[in-house]
Amino acid sequence: MVHQKIGRILEYPFSGLIVFLVLGLFVPLVIPTYWVMVVTEILIMGLFATSFNLLFGYCGLLSFGQAGFFGVGAYVTALLLSKGVGSYILICIASITATLIAAYFIGYLCVRRDEIFFAMLSLGFGMMLFTIAHNWREVTGGSDGLPLSTVPPVDLGFSKISLFHPLHGYYFVLAFVFVGLCILQVVVHSHFGLMLKASRENKERLAFSGGNVASVRLVAFLMAGGLSGLAGMLFCIFNRMATPDMLHWSFSAKPVLMTILGGAEVFWGPFVGAVIFFVLEQLVTNITENWMFVLGLLLIPIVLFFPRGILGTVLNLMKSSGRGSHGQ
């Protein structure tokens, strides 16, 4: 009975956002400071992974260069902040615009490819962006990146709020991430979302029925890119830095890992994957230095026994058990 109820609640498209907002607003009030900061990072990486999944889960396109866009967002933010720009709205608009421009050029060339070829092409472009960040020393600070000595307070009109306080930083990030997730949620439930899924299931049929696969994919690519850029902006503000590591392919592997961990077929899969990833990492590094070893060992059974990712598989079980009790 309980499963059934949860299953039904979960099927309402926007219930997830409400749960997210409630948890997001209250959890940080009751956890220790360090964990507030970890959860801040989870929010940012969760947004990054969810935007990646718009391509992966909904279009079937495995982007291995998503960190490139994340990095563009971070670098534009760092450049503007170091030039003394204090308005976060302006910074947000600028970094998303810059990311969209990059995503447009790269997407235009990538979206006609499928599967592994798309993955390798996006990897190539992502690494080109990495090389620019790493080698254009005059602008990007080269391998050192752009450290920010401080971040300006948020001007709310009636008062200025310093982001130095971990809780303030948290709510600042939460606001942007919530908006980002709302956009994604609306997109996947719209007519366009259906077209995306159609482009994944059957390219030819969509093409026959008059849909332009390439342009549908390009729009998805732009959205995923723009929101990755937003995540990058938040990451830059949170860590007070933009560094070339943020554009490297190993950084692109993170959203892939999180998404498959959580489940690519459900909207909240990547986010849950991000939570699991960070909590696991924290637990494992507490116990041993050989966290890669343990992470690998944990990952193997997850891949083998949770074919739809953890959230995906759990939801599936709930649904089928719910259906089972219907039958009885």
Partner: peptide, 26 residues
């Protein structure tokens, strides 16, 4: 914030050092 250490020691990479040093102010 969690272990409440009295002093931090370390850092191998120059790039890392340059990026995290500003955090000490906070």
């Amino acid at each position: 914030y969690q272990e409440n250490v009295d002093c931090l020691i370390g850092l191998d990479s120059s790039g890392v050092a340059k990026s995290v040093v500003p955090l000490m102010n906070e």
